[in-house]
Simulated scan of single mutants.
Amino acid sequence: MNQIEIVDKSFARYVMHNARLECIAQGFRWTEGPVWFGDAGCLLFSDIPNNRIMRWIEGIGVSVYRQPSQFANGGTRDQQGRLISCLHGARAVVRTEHDGRITTLVEKFQGQRLNSPNDVVVKSDGSIWFTDPHYGIAMDYEGERAEEELPCHVYRFDPRHRRLVVACDTFDCPNGLCFSPDESLLYIAETGRISEDSATREIRVFEIRDAARGQLGEGRSFYAPDVGAADGFRCDEDGNIWTSAGDGVHCVSPEGALLGRIRLGEPVSNVTFGGRHRSRLFICCATAVHAIYLNRRGAPPP
């Protein structure tokens, strides 16, 4: 099977004929939340049903980073290089300090417990933006079944002032999210509620009107994969979105046009850029993690 599909001729500049798709780790139940630690030369990712965070190092392989992980899902790093994690089990967003201690950042909104924080990004002002769908409490496979206490919203958390606000309340179940390279736009995935077979599944894009207050403009539909759903995604340096889909990874232009695909033959959950120049795309699939070098770098960290 040809794993690279060029839809628009511009995509040919992004891939290299001598850089192959590599399976770097396998044997998991559902991988998610890839985070690259360049200073440590490792990739962290979640194996949610197995309740653990894994660590991969080039030339060494895979080891357990944290177990139990409270069914950790999405993750990122803050400006101090600390790991920020979304936990289904604890229904919280937490930070791993440099000495290994875990600090709970947020677990409630207006006195009610969060549902199951899913994915998270950090803006250059230090604010933490995350989605809170119901997936981790809708079943026992990726968490523990429980009643919803809040609608499924997108939140902005200010760690300096401990202020949590709703950034967007127009989603049935928000999922992955990322900023454009200049942070003027926020992309958010809608993947719908588990019980709804006809749910809308698409990426929406929002202008950021007032970042300090977590205020977004009116969103619009940006891209909907023709196979499966867009779960997690990241921007490259040119503003293209590299998104998960039901058949692999789709590369989408800033205008919302499909440029090309990396086909894997199974659903992809999330991706991140890493490696020496942030030009290696790490891909979390259902049971494995893959990687491929690209002729594009990921957007710089905040």
Results as ranks from 00 to 15, higher is better:
residue 133 P to T: 10
residue 149 E to K: 00
residue 200 T to C: 11
residue 281 L to N: 04
residue 144 E to D: 13
residue 219 G to L: 03
residue 119 D to W: 01
residue 204 R to I: 05
residue 37 F to W: 12
residue 188 I to V: 15
residue 279 S to G: 13
residue 105 L to E: 07
residue 264 L to Y: 07
residue 7 V to L: 09
residue 145 R to Y: 01
residue 145 R to T: 11
residue 166 V to F: 10
residue 2 N to A: 10
residue 295 N to T: 07
residue 212 A to M: 10
residue 273 F to Y: 05
residue 19 A to W: 08
residue 68 P to Q: 00
residue 264 L to V: 15
residue 265 G to W: 08
residue 80 Q to Y: 10
residue 144 E to W: 09
residue 9 K to N: 10
residue 267 P to N: 04
residue 173 C to Q: 15
residue 48 I to N: 01
residue 20 R to Q: 13
residue 59 G to M: 02
residue 23 C to G: 00
residue 218 E to V: 13
residue 301 P to I: 08
residue 178 C to Y: 00
residue 85 S to L: 15
residue 50 N to W: 02
residue 36 W to Q: 05
residue 41 G to F: 02
residue 39 D to K: 15
residue 12 A to Y: 01
residue 81 G to P: 09
residue 56 W to I: 06
residue 154 V to G: 06
residue 40 A to K: 15
residue 80 Q to L: 09
residue 116 S to F: 00
residue 136 G to M: 02
residue 199 A to P: 10
residue 12 A to I: 14
residue 176 G to L: 01
residue 200 T to F: 03
residue 86 C to Y: 00
residue 60 I to H: 12
residue 295 N to A: 12
residue 206 F to P: 04
residue 265 G to H: 13
residue 240 N to P: 13
residue 220 R to A: 07
residue 101 R to S: 15
residue 4 I to P: 02
residue 65 Y to Q: 06
residue 65 Y to T: 04
residue 184 S to T: 15
residue 297 R to Q: 15
residue 232 G to A: 03
residue 127 S to V: 00
residue 231 D to G: 05
residue 38 G to C: 13
residue 12 A to D: 14
residue 231 D to A: 03
residue 270 N to D: 07
residue 259 L to H: 12
residue 259 L to C: 12
residue 141 Y to I: 13
residue 74 G to S: 02
residue 180 S to G: 09
residue 49 P to F: 01
residue 297 R to M: 14
residue 128 I to R: 00
residue 196 E to R: 08
residue 76 T to D: 06
residue 226 D to K: 06
residue 186 L to V: 06
residue 91 R to S: 09
residue 163 R to I: 09
residue 29 R to F: 05
residue 92 A to N: 10
residue 192 G to S: 11
residue 155 Y to D: 04
residue 23 C to V: 10
residue 71 F to L: 06
residue 191 T to E: 11
residue 32 E to P: 08
residue 123 K to N: 06
residue 230 A to Y: 06
residue 41 G to W: 04
residue 180 S to Q: 09
residue 92 A to M: 10
residue 152 C to L: 07
residue 258 L to C: 11
residue 156 R to F: 06
residue 45 F to M: 08
residue 79 Q to A: 11
residue 104 T to P: 03
residue 298 G to D: 06
